[in-house]
Amino acid sequence: MQKTSDELILFVFVAIGIIAVMMAFILTILFLYRKRQQEFEKNLARLKLDNEKAVLSTRLEIQEQTFQHISREIHDNISLALTLAKLNLHTLDWDNREKSAVKVDSAVELLTQSITQLNDLSKSLDADIIGQQGLLAAIEEERQRIEKIGTFHICYSVSGNPVYMNSQAELVIFRIIQEAFNNIIKHARAGTVSLALHYNNRTLQLKIEDDGAGFDTETILTGQHAGLKNMEARTQLLGGQMEINSRPGRGTTLNFTIPFETP
């Protein structure tokens, strides 16, 4: 009897030990995992916050660039034309009709030029066409506007099955293309520009190629070149990638890969 109860006590003790070990093991795993999970969530929240700050900073930077662009356009072109028109009207000689007529015609021409430039500036900033007719229609209109200036010829092509992306994303893509064209106008002295959009299963491949002056990518990218930085920032906003290929005297090719689903 004593022996049986000793055996039973031994069994009970070992059984309690097994339960204790098992519970300790499970609780330890749960505790350590929970701790790791909290660390992970904290890091995730921090990354998310950093990302949001980066996105906000990029948006503000882009906004600032746009304001600078408007300011430059007004100062360099429109303001100058209006000043000249004013000067012409201010210096009218009412005794000399012929000379005055020439000056008035010149002032009218300058005013017309200013109105056209203001209209063009307004149109280029107006995003309504994106919302109403989509990206491709906006690009076509921009192409026509630039070709009318006569700076270079644009070969425009679209392949694949066009996908409607949300208006915000299409607007950003449109601004990238505008920025690229602005850079070509200002720096490249190109004769022909090729603009190709290819829609595949999940991404839009955008290629802008010119036969202009080209540049040394290493020098340009380490400098403060707002246009390229702007395009890069806009591409990153969409979760896409930008690739620049250029050599002095060999033209420039910009390749963009933009996912349909923006992050």
Binding site: I26, Y33, F40
Partner: peptide, 22 residues
């Protein structure tokens, strides 16, 4: 593997955790 992978699972509600732990 549980501690190598990102801790995305709610362990106390994971059936596989309970079966394997016990």
């Amino acid at each position: 593997k549980l501690f190598k992978m990102p801790p995305a699972v709610n362990l106390s509600k994971s059936p596989s955790f309970w079966i394997i732990s016990f």
